[in-house]
Write a protein that binds this DNA or RNA. Structure first.
Length: 266
DNA sequence: ACTCAGGTATCCT
DNA sequence: AGGATACCTGAG
């Protein structure tokens, strides 16, 4: 089905934003995302027109929310125009959106992410999905459920390049398996409470918990600090970054900085 | 061969 | 509280 968007929507920016690990370019103007148990292919037709290979029903029920189409990103970009650096970052990141991704998948993905490059994270996640996730089509597997990870052969899990993170993932799988409604419970918490609750998991510190909250629980005010963000803040905000200025959208600003600064410096 | 990667836990002072 | 260090392993 064809869609036309007025607000920011750039598949390349989203795919390269570091918030998702199963969102890849597969052709000249074509991207494929495996998420929520489905495979979606989107073609950029130019002039803000996009071809989604899904039913209009699926778009309304699933992908509209996944792509956060009810948030006005262009007005968030406008809100930083008083700051030269942030304004430049936003200008380089036009089309960015914070996805509504699966909460469990974010827990595991960001536990995996520590001390790994993005390509290495993607490799690990794909191996894990192939090992124990439901088969969706000839080439793709869904992200495994907590039960599927718990029942998988540990030796094969160890072969997914998870390293010392494997026990963390198994612990998290036990937690989510034992409490099937855990995401509903966590959804009700305040940002601060959610952060504390997430950090109770082994292998989840400030940065990983913030990523889970921002990309899984869609708490748009979380501001994960990774090496790139820290470099950018040291360079451009030597006196500290005021988290009150852009609330409640600090997380969106963080994505603009991450995307623009990392692309400029690496 | 060698460094570093979107960090965290642990052990210090 | 804040600083130093080890940690699995793949990608460049």
């Amino acid at each position: 089905m064809k869609k036309s968007f007025k607000d920011d929507f750039d598949l390349n920016v989203i795919a390269e934003s570091g918030q998702c690990f199963r969102f890849n370019q597969t052709g000249e103007n074509t991207f494929q995302v495996v998420a929520l148990g489905k495979v979606l292919t989107i073609k950029d037709m130019g002039q803000n027109a996009f071809d989604f290979d899904c039913s209009s029903d699926d778009y309304k029920k699933i992908w509209h929310k996944y792509f956060d189409m009810d948030t006005d990103y262009s007005s968030i970009r406008e809100s930083v125009k008083d700051n030269k650096f942030l304004c430049d970052c936003a200008a380089h990141s036009v089309g960015m959106r914070i996805l509504n991704q699966d909460k469990w998948e974010m827990v595991v993905s960001f536990i995996i992410s520590q001390r790994k490059s993005i390509p290495a994270i993607k490799t690990s996640i794909e191996r894990l999905c192939e090992l124990c996730g439901d088969k969706i089509d000839d080439e793709n597997h869904a992200f495994p459920t907590p039960a599927q990870i718990l029942y998988a052969d540990v030796n094969k899990l160890a072969n997914c390049g998870l390293g010392y993170r494997l026990p963390y993932i198994l612990k998290a799988a036990e937690l989510f398996y034992e409490e099937p409604d855990i995401t509903e419970r966590l959804d009700k918490l305040t940002d601060e409470e959610l952060l504390e609750e997430l950090k109770k998991m082994q292998g989840v510190g400030d940065k990983v918990a913030s990523c889970i909250a921002l990309f899984g629980f869609h708490r748009l005010n979380f501001f994960p600090k990774d090496v790139w963000i820290n470099r950018a803040l040291d360079e451009h905000f030597p006196d500290g970054f005021d988290m009150n200025l852009y609330a409640p959208y600090n997380g969106v600003i963080q994505q603009y900085i991450f995307y623009a600064y990392r692309n400029a410096k690496r």
